[in-house]
Simulated scan of single mutants.
Amino acid sequence: MGKIRLKNIRVHSNHGCLKEEMLIGSDYRVDLEVFVNLSEPSTSDKLSDTVDYVHLNNIVKEEMAIRSNLLEHVAKRILDRIFSELSAVENAEIEVAKINPPIGGDVQSVAVILKAERPR
């Protein structure tokens, strides 16, 4: 078993429950880990034998572009697409963080972390 990790994917999107968030948007950071059997690609050296991190990054960017009220919702959508489109992924963990959230204080970020296994 191995792990493919995408760290600090930065996007601007309009998630949130406040009207200002819906209109102006905020900056977000996404960290993603997928657990995959990497024994074959580690010897074959073929992209077709592994999970392409470009595909993972595209899923994150496309789902982050769809407005949601809650970070929990967008994180679950990303995980659902990963399991739907990438059969080699057994487990995944995602962290979606809103940078400088409008919560009335000096807070660097708020984040939601979801872990999931491939549905059986």
Rank of each mutant, 00 (worst) to 15 (best):
L18S: 11
A97G: 02
V54Y: 08
G104K: 05
L114W: 03
A65E: 09
I113M: 06
E63I: 08
L6T: 14
V30W: 05
N69F: 15
N91K: 14
L47T: 08
G16Q: 07
H73A: 10
P119L: 03
L70E: 06
I66V: 15
V112K: 03
S109Q: 12
I99H: 05
R10W: 05
M22Q: 15
N58V: 12
R10M: 06
L6H: 14
V34D: 04
K61W: 00
K3S: 09
E40C: 07
R77I: 02
V60F: 01
I113Y: 00
R10I: 07
A88I: 03
L86V: 14
I103F: 02
G105H: 05
K76M: 09
E117C: 11
D27R: 11
F83H: 02
I103R: 01
S26W: 00
I59W: 01
F35I: 00
S26H: 13
N100G: 08
L56S: 10
T43H: 13
I99E: 13
S26G: 15
L79E: 10
D52Q: 03
A75S: 15
S87T: 12
E63R: 14
K76D: 13
L23F: 09
R120L: 13
A97I: 04
F35S: 02
S42T: 11
H73D: 11
V30P: 05
K76I: 02
T50K: 04
N100T: 11
V51P: 11
E20A: 13
A92Y: 05
I66Q: 15
E20M: 11
I59S: 07
G16M: 08
I9E: 03
F35W: 08
R81T: 06
S68K: 13
C17M: 14
L47S: 08
S26Y: 02
E95G: 09
K98W: 09
K7C: 10
Y53N: 09
D31I: 00
D106A: 13
I59C: 00
S39L: 11
I82C: 07
H73G: 06
F83A: 00
S68D: 05
N69G: 11
G16T: 04
E63H: 14
N37F: 06
V89M: 04
I24N: 12
M1S: 14
P102W: 03
P119G: 10
G2E: 01
N91R: 15
V112W: 02
I113T: 15
S87F: 08
V54R: 06
N58T: 15
V11R: 05
L56F: 02
I9Y: 02
V96R: 05
M22D: 14
E63Y: 07
M1Q: 02
V34Y: 04
R81M: 01
I99A: 10
E33L: 07
V36W: 08
V51D: 10
E90C: 02
D49P: 11
R29N: 14
D31K: 00
S13R: 00
M64N: 09
